[in-house]
Amino acid sequence: MMANMGIAFAILGAALAACLAGAGSAIGVGIAGQAAAGVTTEDPAKFSKVLILQLLPGTQGIYGLLIAFLCLSNVGVIGTPVEISLAKGVMYFFACLPMAIAGLMSAIYQGKASVSCISMVAKRPDQFGKAMIFPAMVETYAILALLISLLAISGVGAINI
């Protein structure tokens, strides 16, 4: 029983990375989509600009997927099966958490920032470049989480316990 717990923890970590980051992106893209639809209703010419702003919170879902894929691949769920100890499984679990939690929160807040910037583009379309920067700043923290999860998963793979 305990011998199988390692792989279970690793899969739980991968699932959380994919689910939470994906859920965050869905919420972020969803609220930005509502705002984008509002602006496009009044001025269809702004469609392309608001679409880009709407898509910005979608990246966390992709990062979560990447981490989940990498984790599943390292523990042998995808590809060649390998033996995973309980300690190693728990390590994979914690390695996935940064992406899961930071992905969820950053996507929601990036969605809110996108909504405000969509309003900004509605009033000042010439300021589209600046409007892109504000939600993009939130992306920094999702990238930092992605980086640490990537490094952690790679590092755990090299540990022999």
Binding site: T41, E42, S119, A122, K123
Partner: peptide, 8 residues
């Protein structure tokens, strides 16, 4: 959605 339309 409503606020975005109001902004426009």
């Amino acid at each position: 959605y409503a606020v975005a339309r109001i902004r426009a």
